[in-house]
Write a protein that binds this DNA or RNA. Sequence first.
DNA 1: GTCTATAACTGGATAGAC
DNA 2: GTCTATCCAGTTATAGAC
Lengths: 231, 231
Amino acid sequence: MRARILDAAEAQFAKHGFDGVAMRDVAGRARVDAALLHYYFGTKKGLFDAVFARRAAVLNRVRIDALDEYARRAGHNVTVEGALKAFTDPLLELAALGDKGWKNYFALLAQVNNTPAWGGRTMTRYFDPVIQRLVEVVRVALPDADPQDLYWSYHFLSGALTLVLSQTGRLERLSRGLCRSGDIEAVYARLTPFMTAGFLAVCQPAGARKVRAGGAVRRRSDGRMLQAGRG
Amino acid sequence: MRARILDAAEAQFAKHGFDGVAMRDVAGRARVDAALLHYYFGTKKGLFDAVFARRAAVLNRVRIDALDEYARRAGHNVTVEGALKAFTDPLLELAALGDKGWKNYFALLAQVNNTPAWGGRTMTRYFDPVIQRLVEVVRVALPDADPQDLYWSYHFLSGALTLVLSQTGRLERLSRGLCRSGDIEAVYARLTPFMTAGFLAVCQPAGARKVRAGGAVRRRSDGRMLQAGRG
DNA sequence: GTCTATAACTGGATAGAC
DNA sequence: GTCTATCCAGTTATAGAC
């Protein structure tokens, strides 16, 4: 019963946000009486928090496990790519299950992650430990990286990942049907390579960085970029 | 008067989203009578659309101009980095002005971009032309790139860019004050290098791609990734 | 634990005076 | 163009029967 309410609330909050959802709607979709929601969860905010916390716990466990497992197996041979895969793959696997609940939850995360009023606080409260663990593991691969570069790089990854899972239909429209945003296989094939290259470009100290052909970048001492070659 | 209402509405919608804002609040902050909002904009949705459209027009003009200008000057020597800079720099410059209005607007964009119910449609309606132009210009640098790879890469960029501008305070908290999300100089220094590397890693056809040391990736025919070396 | 009824309030929107 | 007054639909939340 509790679960049915949480499922319905999750779907509605994911689609319309906290303020766009009426307790009545949730009760109707869950096919329970409206007063029950208050009996179980007290307030609307209580219901929302319960929705948010339920899968956060699961998500954090599988990701922390994946990161620990990867760090243990890789030892000193940790790579940026391996660390990022350990962080994102468990999430993509859940998204690929076809489970409506997880898809809704990820769409909810995308909204919260971009909600100025309280989104930052909420994401911090629930997800900081796993992200700090990710940064730790990446640091094994890039021991000389500037922490600021690592955090900014993660921030870029976070934005991309949440938008990918946000189910807005944006990509379909933009690509005129060429890409489907629910196509997790397509994300698997591209997200980690993209992000790995990004992390390396930003976080690898200048001395250790290989200069690549075409569009090589070099960091100046003040942190601004200079474009090498023809601009 | 219209402008004062739009400014107040922009700030409120940016912070709390469409459903989190009351017309009364907007009227109060704009210090005008509540009935005036309906006189000028008809409905709440009419007000929201006016807010959204106002700066979209400005943003589209400066970005299209920057892309055209860059394509003209670079000719056949277009680089991915140059194209991405032409696309993002005008936006970052507006964000760096210190103008509260633009900051609010970008936070609003971040929310809309991640709103499942109608965000995709809205972003498409207002911003598709400039993005198609970006893809066109990037294609001059990567003529053999698969369009799907380009659209996915843009999707990643879009998510990162909107989160960066979303003003949630997330980055501050995560980095324990080491980074400030409003620090546009820091974004300048990192966003383009990160995204350029990502685009090249994903969109450069395998034949033309240099294999990099450490964490090299190869695409299989089915699009899945294989990690080279120790995983 | 569950449902009925309703309190208490806030929301968008409008009619009509000036 | 602007403001007063108000309508009324929809909201969260609770009291109390069963």
